[in-house]
Every structure is written in structure tokens, then in C-alpha cells.
Nucleic acid binder design. Structure first.
Length: 506
RNA sequence: GGCCCGUUCGUCUAAGGGUUAGGACACCACCCUUUCACGGUGGUGAUACGAGUUCGAAUCUCGUACGGGCUACCA
């Protein structure tokens, strides 16, 4: 049952799933699949104050859309569950006790107010953010500064406390990162991080180590923002489970926005999505648009994300999820942060629109039209329309502008573009064209074009001057694919109807 | 401030000591196109800086600069 490789992703249900989050899932997923291992999901919901109702389901929806479903999850409970950290509270406290017993952690009774006073007093331009470390440890209220009796008394009285790690003095903690090679820290600059909060919930530091051990995680990939706290985790591994059992770490480069770490704010500011799927904050009702709703194909989304910080070493850029699984290797992940480029993201989507089967596009486009209140009655016509216009579409939503006129006659007719050069001669030409087209037995592009041009010549008109009016009659404006292609797909009766209708408006 | 990580065209990246430093996006020009696009061809454009090691450095070492991250009873 146990696979050689087990990886995990641990989202916190606090809001939308952003690009960096999905990319972390993706790299975990690819690594697991490549080594025929397990990929599990843990839910970090130990911060009750930030827990957002619905966020957990939303995360699963996003991963399902992207095709990155975990093997086991809180929904499909596996053998190492539960996977919600709030349901593992007792487990963590057991390890907290062990750390205290072994002298690697201690009780701290300081109230938030006392901590604030300490920070204010110690704050200076040299030290803008004072830490709870060996220099202040003895001046605070904790089981190190207090006598055993006083500590017991406070405990017995039910005084609120947290458990803090006791960072050893003057040690060098180093580890091998799969992406950055050796990284090392001096423990003298580390602070005594809280391990168990006053409500008994663990912080990330304790939870990640305990869970990785209990869930037999072999490789832990996470964002670079975790690098500074890695030594705390290494120390906990050393204290609790032994360094030899520790998973291999890889700290992924950050995805950057136009300035600094990509944020939700950047999306709103620069007009591109940062979440996989649209997310509405249940409290503020603020909507943040996602890649899905913006018109991205999941294939393209995965593809662009994979290439943001990873490269096989070749010039290949378009990869399916299967191809990525084959080609991926964690060592080839870039160490520097990657700035997200929305134009390039759009290019990936365009390539995928050109690449995937019409039947796949059909599903997306049909849904788009239905969402916008246009029922698709003729599936074959839609397929033909998609085939004709797909090269001109960058986003799925572009199909609306590019082929809604196939499904229903245009509402707005740009007659202003015809009128200035309109005359009776042209009017007669189109009346004649209706007759000619009605009589035609073969309704095909080539034939339609030939008879159109012959009729123009017979009336001593330049066909070039007639193409634009014809186009506007069929689609309503100066856009779209070749007019005769459109006419062919529209069919005889619809084409002649549209000519008649616009003629009556002129 | 301290600590950590990073730095090749504007952007994403290739080049694991010897290349005219390659590709893609974007941009520009031309071609195609009696609409708008797509597409095609070509072009502009980079090894942050300074030392060192070496016959030879984008590549190894050191320093500087710049960028980013962390510095919560958040993850």
C-alpha cells in the first residue's frame, strides 16, 4: 500500500486559490505521478479567526477543474486521516507535551498585552521587530523564568498559556534543498516560535512536522516564503522524529506580480485574474474573477503555470498534463522568482484553443452561450462555426463575439458603415443576389463567391465595394471570418433572410 | 535594522568553463488578407557591477549593488 513517494499540499481555507497555490499543487502532483507515488491534501484550518465558510469546497472545485485531484482527501478519507488539522488537535498536543518533557519547549504565560509591551520597549531603529528569543526569555513569564512550583500553580489555576520552542544557542542548522542545494542558518538569530496556541490549536510549525511524519511524507514542496522558518522545522524533526526521517525539502520560487509577490490586489489593479476560479468573499461580497471564468482552458492554465519557474531544458513550451508528468523534475525548477506575464498566459490559451479537439471546445463554447442566454439548438452548426473561428480566439469568451451571429441574427447592425456609399445600384445588386442565391442548388463557399463576383461584374460594380455591405448584413459589423464561409454555414434561407432584413433598413 | 533567498533581452527562459549567448511572449517592419484577426518572414533587444581562479568565465570564488521573502498565539 505504501508508495515510495508521498507528497502533500496544505491549503488554508481562508479565501481564493491563487496562482502560486495551484502551481505548488501542480509540482507536487507531477512529482508524485512521475514516481508513481501518492499525492494527498491536508487542510490547514487551525486559524479559526481566518477560516472562511465555503473555501474548502472551493479549493476542491478549483483542483478538480484543473485536473489535479488528490488521491486521498477529507472527502475520500484515506488511511492517514483525518486530514483537517482542526480534527487532529489532540495529536499535536501530545507532541507538544513530549517536547516540554524533553526540555525542547516550554510554557509561556505572557498575555498578548505583555508581549506588546515587551516589543514596544525593545523596539529601536536597530531592531524594528524584537523577537521572543534567548535575550528576553528570562525576563518573560514562562516555565523557564519561573520556578517549577510557580509554573505548576499557574497551570493548576488554568492560566492561559502557549507552548514555545526553546531554540538552542549557537548551533548551525543546515539542510539540503532540492532546488537551492545547501541552506544554513545560525540558531542565534531564531526566535522561540509558538508551537501550540492558547486555544490548544497548533501553529503551522508544529502541525507541518507532525503531519509530515505521521502521514509518511517523503518530499515536501512549498513556497519560498517558508524558507526562513525552515530551521524551526528542522529542529522539530531533530527533537521529535530524528533528522533521518525528515522529508526532502524543496522551496519553490515565488510568483511575482508587477511589483513584488503576486497579490490579489495586483489582479484588480492590472486587470488579470490571480485565482484559479472566481471567488466571492462571503463577508464583503467582493468578487475576484478567476482564470476559468475569464475564459482559460484548464489545459492552458496548467501549461502556463508549469512553465512559470520550470523548464525541461528544451524549446518545447506546449505540454499536456501527461507530457508534463513525463518531463518534470524538481531539480530543474528555477531558483529565482518568476514574474507573471498575462500576455504570455493568453498566448498559451490561444495555442490550446488551436490544439484541442472541437468536441472539447464545443463543451466550453456551448456553456458560454447558454450562460449568456443563447440556447444552442444546432450542434452541428456550432461545430462548423467553432472550426471556422477558433484560430481568432484567444480566450473562450472570445467565441461569443466571434460566433454568436451564427446562432442568432445580429441585433446591432452597423448601417453607418454602409450608408455613406450606398446607392440604388447596390440596392438592386443585392435584390438580384437574393434571387441568384435562392436559385443556387449547391450551397458552398466557392460557388457563392463565384456567383457573387459574376453578378457584380454584370452590374458593373466592384465586388470589393459590395463585400463590406454583405458582411454587415450577415454579422452586423466589420469583423469575422470570410463572408462566404459565413454564408455557407448560415445556410441559404438564413443568408437571404438577413440580406432582406438589412435592405429594408437602408 | 537583522536573517535568508535570488540576479541572462522589457517578461518567461536555454546554454551543467570554449556558442556569432539560442527560443518563446511583447514590440517594430514587411508579406498574406477587398473586414477584423490568425498566420508567415525578418528586426530591435540580455549575461547587474568589480575583483580573483583559468590558456579561456554567463557558468567557479569573493566583494558590492539591486530585487524579493521572512521577522504574529497567519499560513
Amino acid at each position: 500500500m505504501n508508495k515510495k513517494v508521498r507528497v502533500r499540499f496544505a491549503p488554508s481555507p481562508t479565501g481564493g486559490l491563487h496562482l502560486g497555490g495551484v502551481r505548488t499543487v501542480l509540482y507536487n502532483y507531477l512529482f508524485a505521478k512521475k514516481h508513481d507515488g501518492d499525492f494527498i491534501l491536508r487542510i490547514e484550518d487551525t486559524d479559526q479567526s481566518r477560516y472562511v465558510e465555503g473555501a474548502e469546497k472551493y479549493i476542491f472545485d478549483c483542483l478538480r477543474w484543473a485536473g489535479l485531484e488528490p488521491d486521498e482527501s477529507p472527502e475520500h478519507s484515506g488511511q492517514y486521516g483525518p486530514y483537517r488539522q482542526s480534527e487532529r488537535k489532540e495529536i499535536y498536543s501530545r507532541y507538544g507535551d513530549q517536547l516540554i518533557k524533553d526540555g525542547h519547549a516550554y510554557y509561556a504565560f505572557d498575555t498578548p498585552e505583555e508581549l506588546e509591551i515587551m516589543r514596544q520597549e525593545l523596539k529601536s531603529s536597530d531592531n524594528p521587530s524584537p523577537q521572543y528569543d534567548k535575550t528576553v526569555r528570562h525576563k518573560m513569564r514562562n516555565s523557564i523564568s519561573l520556578s517549577a512550583g510557580d509554573t505548576k500553580k499557574l497551570l493548576d489555576e488554568g492560566t492561559k498559556y502557549v507552548v514555545r520552542i526553546k531554540i538552542p544557542d549557537n548551533e548551525t542548522v543546515s539542510f539540503m534543498d532540492l532546488i537551492r542545494k545547501e541552506v544554513s542558518f545560525d540558531t542565534s538569530v531564531l526566535d522561540d516560535k509558538v508551537l501550540l496556541k492558547a486555544d490548544g490549536m497548533p501553529t503551522y510549525h508544529l502541525a507541518v512536522v507532525v503531519d509530515d511524519y505521521l502521514m509518511k511524507i517523503t518530499h515536501a514542496f512549498r513556497g519560498e516564503e517558508w524558507l526562513p522558518s525552515a530551521p524551526v522545522h528542522i529542529l522539530l524533526w531533530k527533537f521529535l522524529f530524528g533528522i533521518d526521517n525528515m522529508p526532502q525539502w524543496a522551496h519553490l520560487p515565488l510568483i511575482l506580480g508587477p511589483n513584488g509577490k503576486l497579490s490579489k490586489r495586483d489582479g484588480a489593479k492590472f486587470g488579470f485574474p490571480v485565482f484559479a476560479m472566481s471567488w466571492t468573499d462571503p463577508k464583503t461580497h467582493e468578487l475576484t474573477e478567476g482564470f476559468k471564468e475569464k475564459g482559460f482552458l484548464p489545459e492552458a492554465f496548467i501549461n502556463l503555470l508549469a512553465l512559470l519557474g520550470w523548464n525541461e531544458g528544451s524549446e518545447k513550451e506546449i505540454y499536456s498534463l501527461e507530457e508534463l508528468t513525463d518531463a518534470f523534475s524538481i531539480e530543474r525548477v528555477q531558483s529565482g522568482g518568476a514574474r507573471f506575464d498575462y500576455e504570455k498566459a493568453r498566448w498559451f490559451n490561444h495555442e490550446w484553443i488551436k490544439k484541442i479537439d472541437i468536441s472539447r471546445l464545443h463543451i466550453h463554447v456551448k456553456r458560454l452561450f447558454e450562460e449568456r442566454g443563447i440556447p444552442v439548438t444546432d450542434e452541428i452548426l456550432l461545430d462548423k462555426a467553432i472550426e471556422l473561428v477558433k484560430d481568432r480566439c484567444t480566450l473562450i469568451t472570445d467565441f461569443y463575439d466571434q460566433c454568436s451571429f451564427f446562432l442568432q441574427p445580429p441585433v446591432d447592425i452597423d448601417t453607418a458603415a454602409i450608408l455613406p456609399k450606398w446607392d440604388e445600384k447596390k440596392n438592386l445588386f443585392f435584390i438580384e443576389l437574393i434571387r441568384v442565391y435562392s436559385l443556387s442548388s449547391l450551397w458552398q463557399r466557392e460557388g457563392l463567391e463565384t456567383s457573387f463576383k459574376e453578378l457584380a461584374a454584370a452590374n458593373q460594380l466592384k465586388s470589393g465595394e459590395l463585400m463590406l455591405p454583405f458582411r454587415i448584413m450577415l454579422v452586423g459589423g466589420k469583423f469575422g471570418p470570410g463572408v462566404f464561409d459565413i454564408a455557407e454555414i448560415l445556410g441559404k434561407s438564413e443568408t437571404t433572410e438577413r440580406i432582406k432584413k438589412v435592405l429594408s433598413m437602408l
